[in-house]
Amino acid sequence: MKRFSPVLGAVTIVAAIVGYVVWQRPAAPVPPPPAPKEVVVQYADGSKLWSTAEEGMVRPELVKLVSAELHAANLPLDELKVVGGVVRTTIDARIETVSATVVGRLVAPNQRLSATVTAIDPASGGVLAYVPGPNRDRTNLADEQQETVPELAEPFARADAPNLVQARMRPLDVTAAYATFAAGGVQRRAHFVASVTGADGSSLYQASDAEKSVFGNDVADRVTLALKENPACNGVACVPDAFPWAVGYTPQLAVTVLVDETGGDVDAGLSAAIWQELVAELTD
């Protein structure tokens, strides 16, 4: 029988004791995550729209759409809170306010009605105004596909681009389609985020100008002149007789109004009246 050396046995015992002590030692405490930093969401002019300091409040529909767009660009709002920063949107504070005010005055008093307004800058695709309005199911009217009418598709048939209007579309997508005429036949992606800047001033995101020419400038001009001939348009290219829709554009903005009602008689000229008042105020 082999015998263990006393020295080897002592070393083995010491190693076992050290291992036991190390095993029993509590793990080093995990440092708490850094406190989130404020992210400010701004209108296009730099004024404040919302910030993560107001996280406990209900997020406006606009902020939900901005957050979704950031997520699609691999810059989720939760990750952005680690470094802090500023999200500059394309929303024009004046156009947004005017749109909400006109809708509130002409539609809100009638509990059966709701209306949405969307406006886009044809030169960039940036969304200038987004007034969602609840639909008959009390969800977001502007972000749901709605049934279109033949009058909306007619100008695109003249431009040999009928695929730009579908049987069901979101109001924002209708606005983007008509912005193509205002942009001389160039189609641009509608977007809400113009740029994102870190708290240290670094550029984290810049909207790219994704564009596609779908018909020539001469075609766009021809359709625009035809749309301006409607007496109800007051010299602005528009389709006022597409109830419950009304849509049109100037070189600076394309605007769509959609009225939703839950029953009963509705003035078929209401959407056109809202559109006309909006454009009159915004083009002064």
Rank of each mutant, 00 (worst) to 15 (best):
A246Y: 05
V103T: 07
P251H: 01
F215E: 09
I274G: 00
D221C: 02
Q187G: 09
R136F: 06
A10V: 14
D265P: 04
Y130T: 01
N163M: 12
D267I: 12
V41I: 14
T283S: 04
S51R: 14
V193L: 01
A27E: 04
L278H: 14
V219N: 05
G125S: 02
V86K: 09
L172W: 10
V149E: 08
A183M: 06
P6Y: 13
L49F: 02
V40H: 14
D265W: 02
D160E: 09
V174I: 10
P109H: 12
S99L: 03
D260R: 01
D267L: 06
K81R: 04
V257M: 11
F215D: 12
Y249G: 03
K228E: 15
V83Y: 10
I274N: 13
P132D: 09
A10T: 15
V257R: 05
N217E: 15
L278C: 09
V58N: 04
P109Y: 01
S203P: 05
A93Q: 07
P244M: 10
F192A: 13
A226Y: 14
Q24Y: 04
L113H: 13
G185I: 14
L75I: 11
S5T: 03
W275E: 14
I17F: 12
S202G: 15
L258G: 00
R222N: 15
V18F: 13
L62I: 08
K37R: 15
Y178V: 11
K2M: 14
E54A: 05
E277D: 03
D218A: 15
P60T: 01
G269E: 01
I95R: 08
L164Q: 07
M57F: 07
V87G: 09
F192S: 06
V196N: 11
Q146D: 08
Y43C: 07
I120P: 02
P33I: 14
D173P: 06
P36H: 11
A108C: 05
V14Q: 13
Y130Q: 07
T90F: 02
L65N: 03
A220I: 09
D121A: 00
G248R: 00
Y20T: 15
V98Q: 03
L128Q: 12
E277C: 02
V7T: 12
R222G: 13
E261N: 13
G248N: 00
D78M: 08
Q146Y: 06
G263T: 14
T175I: 05
V131M: 08
I95C: 12
A35Q: 09
I120L: 07
D173T: 03
Y178N: 08
R112T: 09
V107I: 02
A35S: 12
A182M: 12
T118V: 15
R222M: 15
T52F: 12
V239L: 05
L65M: 08
E54S: 14
V66Q: 10
F156E: 12
Q111N: 05
S208H: 01
V266L: 05
Y249P: 08
E38N: 09
T139I: 06
D267A: 14
P76S: 08
V186N: 01
T89S: 11
A232D: 15
G198C: 10
A242R: 11
